[in-house]
Simulated assay, not measured.
Amino acid sequence: MRNIKKRVAEKNLENVKFIMVSIDPETDTPQRLKQFSKENFMQDNQWMFLRGTPGDNGEFAAVLAVSYKQISTIDFSHSNILSVFDKNGVMVHQQEGLGVDNEETVAAINLEISN
């Protein structure tokens, strides 16, 4: 996500939020998420870290077609999906994969901001 942020047009950044949603609310306490944001240089206004209840997470994951499964007491297996939403909360783009070319995602963000 930091790579995507670097590629979004500078003039558009004030209108973009990068939201990370924890799938492990028991481990990912607010304090732990804050520490993660510091360690990964994700502290400016564009970053937001969310956590919910296990039930909330399941419902949210289903809506976004994210699969996840707890494989040990401290580890999860999960799909890597990036979703882009317009200012009304409507999903306009989705990309799956880790380490893939994010050009389409960056283009979708820049297009939404320019609309």
Rank of each mutant, 00 (worst) to 15 (best):
Ile4Arg: 14
Lys6Arg: 15
Arg7Tyr: 07
Arg7Pro: 00
Arg7Phe: 00
Val8Ile: 08
Val8Ala: 05
Val8Gln: 07
Ala9Glu: 13
Ala9Phe: 00
Glu10Val: 09
Glu10Lys: 13
Lys11Asn: 11
Asn12Ile: 00
Glu14Val: 04
Val16Gly: 04
Ile19Cys: 07
Met20Asn: 13
Met20His: 13
Met20Gln: 11
Val21Arg: 13
Ser22Ile: 00
Ser22Asp: 05
Ile23Val: 14
Ile23Asn: 14
Asp24Gly: 07
Pro25Tyr: 04
Glu26Gln: 14
Glu26Arg: 12
Glu26Ser: 09
Glu26Phe: 10
Asp28Thr: 09
Pro30Val: 08
Gln31Ile: 09
Leu33His: 00
Lys38Phe: 08
Lys38Thr: 01
Gln43Ser: 07
Asp44Gly: 02
Asp44Met: 04
Gln46Thr: 01
Met48Ile: 02
Phe49Tyr: 15
Leu50Gly: 02
Gly52Leu: 01
Gly55Ser: 12
Glu59Tyr: 14
Glu59Lys: 15
Glu59Ser: 12
Phe60Tyr: 09
Phe60Ala: 07
Ala61Asn: 08
Ala61Ser: 11
Ala62Ile: 00
Ala62Asp: 05
Ala62Pro: 00
Leu64Glu: 00
Ala65Glu: 13
Ala65Pro: 07
Ala65Asn: 14
Ser67Tyr: 11
Ser67Val: 01
Ser67Cys: 06
Tyr68Lys: 06
Lys69Ile: 03
Gln70Val: 04
Gln70Cys: 05
Gln70Gly: 06
Ser72Pro: 00
Ile74Pro: 00
Asp75Gly: 01
Phe76Ala: 07
Ser77Met: 10
Asn80Met: 14
Ile81Tyr: 07
Ile81Arg: 02
Leu82His: 11
Ser83His: 15
Val84Glu: 06
Phe85Val: 02
Asp86Cys: 12
Gly89Phe: 14
Gly89Met: 13
Gly89Asp: 09
Gly89His: 15
Val90Thr: 12
Val92Tyr: 00
Val92Trp: 02
His93Cys: 11
Glu96Ala: 03
Gly97Ala: 11
Leu98Val: 14
Leu98Phe: 15
Val100Leu: 15
Val100Glu: 12
Asn102Phe: 05
Asn102His: 10
Thr105Met: 06
Thr105Gln: 06
Val106Leu: 05
Ala108Phe: 09
Asn110Leu: 01
Leu111Pro: 08
Ile113Tyr: 15
Ser114His: 10
Asn115Met: 10
